[in-house]
Design a binder for these strands. Structure first.
Length: 928
RNA sequence: GCGGAUGUGGCGUAAUUGGUAGCCGCGCUAGACUUAGGAUCUAGUGCCGAAAGGCGUGGGGGUUCGAGUCCCUUCAUCCGCACCA
């Protein structure tokens, strides 16, 4: 038969589904390997050609590992909660579950036709009650836990309560909100409300008034990673700061562990660096400033305690708690105005005005704890409420922001660090502050003359002794806001009694998402769940009306795959002890500061609980590059219906228009198709070059409006899944971003046909020889085994595809159709062109799937050579080749080179100074 | 501003340890077969040059017998973070 990709691929996809070829067993004599793809949100648009890139790579790896004798877990599922389905529901009234189900079906059909080796029996969907039961369960555990800094792990809240009633909270070192000290007696005397309030300060899932990113257009708050440049990541709507009562996860408790854990991970340096920046650890000191005429102290955080003597003023964030209290009557009006203005500006406005210096004097004075000087307290929005304490000591001489502020408002500037050998000058004449952490302290009392680094140590020691402050590590990472005022998400397993939140009993899980009449907030502005009838417990207590955010369901999905049908627990001990963690995780780097941090946190928390067995969820991670669109353009001569070909366009005034890539082949426009595409083009005229209309092109985002979207279905239909799989890999290194361009796909298709022809004669009949292979044939095979396996191990799939091409070219050239060569070759290529390999394997007379055949073993002997064709270079430039036996000694080679008749020409009267011989590599003759 | 990455033919790319730069594919050129070709096959194809040869991995400099690879410097592009005290 002729190579018919549709027939072959359909046949084997059915076979795999029927035989459950890719089923993974929990527990096996084989070693385990867990290969995971980031599961997709099933959008209405379906998969485009960029999605499968990572899936194909991981699939090749999974199949390779099966050949290598591993028990491979390779599952797939859906991140099924999400805004688009809900937005659609608001517009049309269609239940998001219906839309989601429809989209999932389409995704599944698209995935199936590419021939992935997923164990579909393990599919999970985050919106499925049997799945989100465990998301809710984890929330309950978080609610019932606190973070003990002494043992550096989460502990049961009961333990904390027991401690409070025995000893109060003095001896507790917890990650918590600021909580006044209390004794055991005081604790016992508190009523339920008060006790719950205090516990809330400690819980890892807690309800609190916090500044949130409020997105009015979406009607919900967003987490920090869901906001990009002051706009919502989904939809691009403006975001503002708002104080709201919200559920949060105390991820900051894990900041240090999240940072330290990175060291153990095989992730790209850039991704780890992104996480490090996001966590944002900085070392410094907390320093207390007394306030003139007030009983309060202001705590500030600084990374430069050494410059304390140079602090000439203080600045509070406009949101700072003490502002109203400290502001004097004379300044009140101005301060109020400033605060109101700061509040009403959107995040985006605030960010775009970063360069503008604004601020107002409060009228209050702080006291420099070292000098006793009175220094003015200002408020300005360059100080962020969310970082440190929302208050700073300003050292204008050594901080560029403080410097700009001091200059603008004419505040004093005092130099306290000098560069070695610097000529002292008046800092008010400086062009810039001196921020570097190098130099010698001046004007700084008892630390004068010290190096900055020593000065920092000394001053921390000093302020600790004097009770003025202490050394402190600060993180940029914020607690994760965990409530959304939306419908399509996990309901909280929470109800309210006297306005105090309680979690439901675990036995009542899952708390199922109720039906509502509309997917909109209520008239009172409550979230959509407030519309649900009887949204209350059996006892009549109202249920929480917020739902969980997108990252709730995706934070632990990789664990559920290990034991997806377990009704009694998240996953069994036996399952997690077997699968441990994800060995290889593939996905986009857009999840760097979202999903990949939250999952690590989730996993660490479950680790503290003794549920997971490794501290990190994803051992090795590869970020596949984004596939961008490649748009084509045509050039209309302004005011006409004439279109001019690309290279002639500069002779006219033209406008470039996007043209559908489907009617352009290798940048040549299909004019007839174009004329038919739209009525207005029916009478278009063309100015051609060499009889063709050449289109321009540009790399852009793949989008409908740019007519450059390529979906895999049409390619699978035309060339088959195997071609698509190979071509996506052939495009370039997996991690590189690259434009999608189908012009090379024919080459890959030709390659597969050529491969097929090795097994078939000119009449398309399967013909295989049983003859013993020649040395030459064995060499081709084993060279290929070696290279392909090396490539796959370093995730270099593009070079592996080239290697197959070289192999097939060489075997074709010598017309090799020997079983002894082709059988191993079939196994080698089966992770890549899986359907074709199954078919050939079947034709070779096997009745079982090829999937579990042992990977061919590389045998060194077959590729060994007796001679080597040495490149002979003179002063580093290659001039000719010289074939010599490999066993020749260096000295013998030198003689051969000197005798070679071409050598004379390149010496031309000059002297041979030296001959460098690298055996088996190169000969270099140095002449002068 | 800080951090990360990337620069190689007309295009996508390869060169794993400092050792033949341009493998493989696209495109292009010529030819064969064909009613036809967006099919198949053969040959050629980094640039300049008739050739000999010269020049070539963003630019400049360095180390080395030898540099795409190492060092310094500079430019360009992309990505992330960004008043984080």
């Amino acid at each position: 038969m002729e190579y018919n990709h549709s027939e072959v691929e359909k046949k084997w996809q059915q076979y795999w589904a029927q035989h459950k070829t890719f089923r993974a067993e929990n527990g096996s004599a084989k070693p385990k390997f867990y290969v995971l793809d980031m599961f997709p949100y099933p959008s209405g648009a379906g998969l485009h050609v960029g999605h499968p890139l990572g899936y194909i790579a991981s699939d090749i790896y999974a199949r390779y590992m099966r050949h290598k004798g591993y028990n491979v877990l390779h599952p797939m599922g859906y991140d099924a909660y999400g805004l688009p389905a809900e937005q659609y529901a608001i517009q049309t009234g269609t239940h998001p579950a219906v839309t989601t189900e429809k989209n999932i079906r389409r995704y599944r059909a698209q995935l199936d036709q590419i021939g992935f080796s997923y164990d579909w029996d393990r599919e999970v969907r985050t919106c499925d009650p049997t799945y989100y039961k465990w998301t809710q369960w984890t929330f309950i555990q978080l609610f019932n836990s606190w973070y003990d800094k002494k043992s550096e792990k989460a502990q049961p809240i009961q333990k904390l309560i027991a401690h409070f009633s025995m000893q109060g909270n003095a001896a507790i070192d917890a990650a918590c909100a600021e909580t006044p000290l209390f004794t055991a007696e005081a604790w016992t005397a508190m009523n339920e409300t008060k006790q719950q309030e205090i516990l809330m300060n400690y819980r890892l899932a807690y309800l609190a008034e916090t500044w949130v990113n409020w997105c009015p257009a979406l009607g919900t708050v967003l987490a920090n990673d869901e906001v990009k440049d002051g706009l919502s990541e989904r939809g691009g709507y403006p975001v503002e700061r708002k104080m709201m009562r919200q559920w949060s996860l105390r991820i900051t408790a894990y900041a240090q562990r999240l940072l330290d854990g990175l060291e153990t991970l095989e992730w790209s340096e850039s991704l780890k660096e992104m996480q490090r920046n996001w966590i944002g650890r900085s070392e410094g000191a907390a320093v207390n400033f007394k306030i003139k005429n007030h009983p309060y102290t202001l705590e500030v955080f600084t990374t430069r305690p050494d410059t304390l003597y140079g602090a000439t003023f203080m600045v509070l964030a406009p949101e700072h708690d003490l502002i109203q209290t400290l502001t004097t009557a004379e300044q009140k009006k101005e301060v109020d105005q400033y605060i109101t203005r700061a509040k009403n500006r959107s995040e985006r406005e605030r960010m775009s005005e970063v360069k503008t210096v604004t601020g107002v004097f409060t009228g209050a004075y702080g006291i420099n704890p070292l000098t006793g000087d009175e220094i003015p307290i200002w408020t300005a929005d360059y100080v962020l409420s969310g970082y440190g304490t929302g208050a700073i000591m300003a050292v204008p001489a050594h901080d560029s922001r403080d410097f700009a502020f001091a200059r603008h408002f004419n505040l004093p500037i005092l130099q306290v660090v000098a560069q070695p050998g610097e000529k002292m000058s008046d800092p008010t004449t400086w062009k810039d502050s001196y921020d570097a952490k190098e130099g010698i302290m001046v004007n700084s009392g008892h630390i004068n003359g010290l190096e900055v680094k020593q000065a920092i140590k000394k001053i921390i020691q000093h302020i600790e002794e004097q009770n003025l402050g202490h050394g402190k590590v600060n993180f940029r990472l914020r607690d994760a806001i965990f409530s959304r005022q939306r419908y399509w998400g996990e309901p909280f397993p929470v109800y309210y009694k006297n306005d105090i939140p309680y979690v439901v009993d675990e036995s009542t899980l899952p708390v199922e998402l109720p039906e509502v009449d509309k997917y909109l907030p209520t008239e009172e502005g409550e979230p959509p769940l407030a519309r649900a009838e009887n949204w209350q417990t059996a006892e009549g207590y109202p249920m929480e009306t917020n739902t969980m955010p997108g990252f709730a369901g995706s934070s632990g999905y990789y664990l559920r795959y290990m034991d997806p049908h377990n009704e009694n627990e998240y996953f069994s001990k036996q399952a997690v002890e077997y699968w441990q963690q994800v060995d290889l995780y593939l996905g986009g780097d857009e999840h760097a500061t979202g999903h990949l941090i939250y999952s690590r946190f989730w996993n660490k928390f479950l680790y503290d609980l003794g549920k997971t067995v490794t501290d990190e969820p994803f051992k090795k991670l590869i970020n596949q590059g984004k596939i961008q669109g490649r748009s084509n353009f045509i050039y209309r001569i302004n005011g006409t219906r004439q279109f001019v070909s690309y290279n002639l366009r500069h002779n006219y005034e033209t406008t470039a228009l996007h043209v559908d890539i489907h009617i352009v082949h290798n940048d040549i426009l299909d004019i007839e198709a174009f004329k038919k595409s739209r009525e207005e083009y029916a009478h278009a005229e063309f100015i051609l070059e060499e009889g063709k209309y050449i289109c321009g092109w540009e790399v852009e985002k793949m989008s409908k409006s740019k007519y450059n979207v390529q979906n895999p279905d049409e390619l699978v239909e035309k060339y088959g899944a195997d071609t698509l799989r190979l071509y996506e890999m052939f495009l370039g290194p997996l991690e590189a971003h690259k434009p999608w361009d189908t012009s090379g796909i024919e080459g890959v298709y030709r390659f597969l046909k050529k491969l097929w022809k090795l097994y078939h004669n000119e009449n398309h009949e399967f013909t295989i020889s049983q003859e013993t292979p020649t040395e030459r044939e064995l060499k081709i095979l084993h060279k290929t085994i070696k290279k392909v396996e090396e490539d796959i191990r370093r995730f270099s799939f593009n070079t592996a595809v080239s290697t197959f091409m070289i192999c097939v070219n060489e075997l074709t050239a010598i017309q090799c159709n020997k079983r002894a060569i082709l059988e191993p070759l079939t196994i080698l290529i089966s992770p890549y062109a899986s359907h074709l390999a199954e078919e050939l394997w079947h034709q070779l007379g096997h009745s079982q799937t090829i999937e579990y055949e042992a990977y061919p073993e590389f045998i060194e002997n077959y590729i060994q050579e007796n001679t080597f064709e040495y490149p002979v270079s003179f002063n580093g430039k290659t001039r000719f080749k010289l074939e010599l036996p490999l066993e020749l000694k260096t000295s013998e080679i030198e003689i051969e080179v000197k005798q070679a008749h071409e050598t004379k020409k390149w010496i031309e009267g000059k002297q041979i100074k030296k001959i460098i011989v690298v055996p088996g590599r190169i000969i270099n003759v140095v002449v002068a």
